[in-house]
Amino acid sequence: MINLLSRTIMMGTPLLFGALAEVIAERTGMMVTAIEGIFLMGAWAGFVGGYLSGSLIVGFLSAMLAGLLVAGLYGWICIYLKQHQVVTGVAINLLVAGLCSFLYRVIFGVPITPLTVSPLATIPIPLLSEIPLLGPILFNQTILTYIIYFLAPLSYFMLYKTSMGLTIRSAGENPEAVDVAGINVLTVRFLTVLLAGVMGGVAGAFYSIGFLGMFTTNIIGGRGWIAFAICFLGNWNPKGAVIGTLAFGFAEAIAIYMQSIGNSALFPNELFIALPYIMTIVLTISRKSFNVPAKLGVPYLKEN
């Protein structure tokens, strides 16, 4: 059980990175539908950087840069060229999928055995990890999990207690108000999308060099979309995102657990793999009174 909960926190970490990124960007009115591609590019760049340099830090830095570039392309097309967010996201995700497997081939050719790096090690925190029950669950994790412990409250504070947060929240509710207040709406939106790219890149790299130690083209397999869904279900609020992430992390931990025990022929362990996705659908249906940013997905047009 402790193992399962510890897994929950671990698998929840990248999802929360992605979900917080999505929350911040969506509060300005930008759905980052390229999130799946950002995750994938992050996973790819993280692995390439980490493998070639032998340093995971370089890996994560390259993942951040790669996420930034994908988000930059997405933001440029959607914010400055005012194209459709859903459509653009789909296109970029497809492009990134092609790019990643093509460039992997360019760099590594066709290796006989899969290339691996040793993934992030868990760092037990002295004293704290000794606490019964909570210790091994919360404080025997990788560095990324400890970072997210800070990032989650920080993003909440930023959104609700600072002028930057006020601007971000206003841009998604009534961009005209922000414009009239002398702040450039497009810049605000673009910067948050770039931030989402950096955070999403880290999240993607978690899967390749933080957990598996290798890269495959289907490594993300819809987890970017799960982060996207958590943002919706968490009501565009960092608190909600944390709760949603725990639920999804738990579902994923169960799925991994079930795969390891369920070996009888007719046991539908495929359905447990699909559990997070089924959960999204169920939650989308049962979740009422959404607090959607009023201008989510609407480009800011000013006749000129």
Partner: peptide, 9 residues
């Protein structure tokens, strides 16, 4: 105060 404040509110 939108646009007229800086930092922590």
């Amino acid at each position: 105060i939108l646009g007229n404040v800086h930092g922590i509110i």
